[in-house]
């Protein structure tokens, strides 16, 4: 179990690195927003795996809050993107 979970953590860490590459490279702002969204999803998965490794159920609350904040962040970024375009028109 321990070994498998460690492998899983390594896999998740590598995928965060992949997503970070897109986050840094862009090329557009929506790309960065979606990359950030995926990072949050991966962090929730990491929290889940860590709670099994450390045999503790307290971290799941953090994951719950994080999933809510990810959605709020995505929506506010979408709002900001449309707003910014309209302002540029004026």
């Amino acid at each position: 179990m321990q070994i498998i979970l460690t492998v899983v953590l390594v896999l998740l860490a590598i995928s965060i690195l992949f997503v970070l590459y897109r986050f840094i490279k862009g090329p557009t702002l929506p790309d960065r927003v979606t990359a950030f969204d995926l990072i949050t999803t991966i962090i929730i998965a990491i929290i889940a795996v860590f709670s099994i490794l450390w045999d503790s159920t307290h971290f799941i609350d953090v994951a719950l809050v994080l999933s809510l904040i990810a959605f709020l962040g995505a929506m506010s970024f979408a709002f900001y993107l449309t707003k910014r375009r309209n302002d540029a028109d004026k």
Binding site: T28, L29, P30, V33, T34, D37, A70, F71, A74, M75, F77, A78, F79, L81, T82, R84, R85
Partner: peptide, 15 residues
């Protein structure tokens, strides 16, 4: 996830 994805895609298309 679908709602957020739709909102961002829409904003991106408009941009």
């Amino acid at each position: 996830a679908p709602v957020g994805a739709h909102a961002i895609s829409r904003a991106a298309y408009k941009q």
